[in-house]
Amino acid sequence: MPELMQFLLSGLTVGAVYALVALGFTIIYNASDVVNFAQGEFVMLGGMITVFAYGAGAPLPLAAAVAILTTVFVGVALNKLAIEPARGAPVVSLIIITIGASILIRGVTQIVFDKQIHRFPAFTGDAPIPFFGATLLPQSLWVVGGALTVFVGLYLFFTKTLTGKAVLATANNRLAAQLVGINTGWVMTLSFGLSAAIGALAGVLVTPITLTSYDVGIGLALKGFAAAMLGGMGNPKGALVGGLLLGVIEAMTAGYLSSQYKDAAAFVVILAVLFAMPQGLFGAKSTERV
């Protein structure tokens, strides 16, 4: 039994990161119908920039802030330089642009930093906390707590603020949003910035546990995509549940089958969702009534 608990805890920790990546997918997908495969690079940038800022002598919170802000800048630039100019192109082209952007970001990171594996210290030490026979790293609490804070914060933003509702309105009907005076171009910028910030935060939180390097983004993008599919693309609640579920499935696969099959879990999930329930657990965008 302690074994099961241990797998569950590590699954939920990794799952919280997948949930944040899936949330990033969701936000951009809702604003623009684009599946942004550069989402994983935002996570990588969050971790890598923190590593190097910390290494250069900045205190950890400052290093993390620099990393998140820089990543937001990259996200906004991606929208302004690559997505916005291609406005009106088929969605598939836009998705390919994001794949191209992710390759570019990875390449530049490799040149600016290096190809090594890095970490920085956990926020509050590494002393394991006993938990129902299993043990829990303090950093895991940061990861899960951070993810929950982001989800609650975003829920409040979308349901309680006029700006949040303007984002939802733009996602639902871009034409009508413009007619009521919403600058939909700005909403796109906001969505990319927000997704980048969430991705970078995930990278900052998880790097002490999983370590980072210039190429961790591809895997994370795929896992986050699988999580978003599982939960239902476009649904924040789906991103949360899908992410946690995928993390747990992966941990159980690694624990009870073999860690060799761990990464296959995400692909099996994608295929199973496509075959069995293309809408995902929480359905897609609500269907329009004519």
């Binding site: 509702k165 939802l168 996602a171 639902n172 009508a176 965008k285 329009e288």
Partner: peptide
């Protein structure tokens, strides 16, 4: 034309 209300709100 077609009302274009925000159906999800």
């Amino acid at each position: 034309e077609g009302r274009q209300i925000f159906t999800n709100l």
